[in-house]
């Protein structure tokens, strides 16, 4: 089988005496969606920040295509973050430029990559807005005039326009109404399959993980307590914490 796209080895990070990550290791393979689940405070978001190079671990290392990201230098890491990588924030306002039109938001990564043709940037923005089910006629509107679900879809379009290989998603459906969540999850599911994306999905939503992820990793207090095939972890959970997590959700 192919080599992992992203690997973490023994990541440990403590804030004061509080461990946010304790010896976390994982592999993400090309075209794979890996969900990281757990309650708030379990270290999921910290893990995502460390894996994407936005925070440094005290121990352990992160390898992207076999290369230690700590040794890459900030310039190379930033280049990755705006081209081969994408980061979808829970709050779309953290991932969008609210004073820039929807089309400008989608075009920014293209412009950062050196595209200098206004017409081509417009065409790409139009295509991506349609792909995330936003009427391209709204291309020149500010994101503040969009609903929460539309803003999140705009953030996804803005992230995917450069065809990243790896996308980090932090609770992408977190702040949305349930009816809007389903649509967004389905949209993400389709895009991931069509583009062959590798995704690290942080979520506390078991249903989202079941729908999107092939594998799942359960975190509690900074540690990975269980991991495996999504269906098996959810149908046949072994760790007491996973059983609690699954039973609390599926009871509904």
């Amino acid at each position: 089988m192919s080599a992992p796209l992203l690997s973490a080895e023994g990541l440990t990070l403590r804030f004061g005496r509080v461990p946010a990550l304790l010896g976390v290791s994982l592999d993400l393979f090309p075209g794979e969606v890996l969900a990281i689940v757990g309650e708030s405070g379990s270290g999921k978001t910290t893990l995502l920040r460390v894996l994407s190079g936005q925070a440094a671990p005290q121990e352990g290392r992160v390898l992207y295509r076999g290369q230690d990201i700590a040794a890459m230098g900030e310039a190379a890491l930033r280049r990755l973050l705006r081209s081969e990588w994408g980061y979808v924030h829970q709050n779309p306002r953290d991932g969008l430029r609210m004073s820039v039109s929807a089309g400008g938001n989608v075009g920014e990564r293209l412009m950062a990559a050196g595209v200098r043709h206004y017409g081509r940037i417009r065409a790409a923005a139009r295509e991506w807005l349609a792909r995330v089910e936003i009427d391209p006629a709204r291309m020149d509107d500010l994101p503040g005039t969009f609903s929460g679900g539309m803003q999140q879809r705009l953030q996804i379009a803005r992230t995917l326009v450069t065809h990243p290989a790896l996308v980090f998603m932090d609770e992408p459906t977190g702040g949305l109404d349930v009816s809007v969540q389903a649509r967004l999850l389905d949209l993400i599911r389709g895009l991931v399959a069509d583009l062959g994306l590798s995704v690290l999905l942080v979520t506390h939503d078991i249903a989202a993980a079941r729908l999107l992820a092939g594998r799942i990793l359960v975190m509690r207090r900074g540690e990975v307590v269980e991991q495996g095939l999504t269906e098996r972890v959810l149908e046949d959970p072994q760790h007491p914490y996973t059983q609690l997590l699954v039973s609390s959700v599926l009871a509904a």
């Binding site: 495996g228 095939l229 269906e231 098996r232 149908e235 046949d236 072994q238």
Partner: peptide
């Protein structure tokens, strides 16, 4: 059956 399907470990 579920063990054979890999659903159960």
């Amino acid at each position: 059956l579920r063990c054979l399907a890999g659903t159960y470990g």
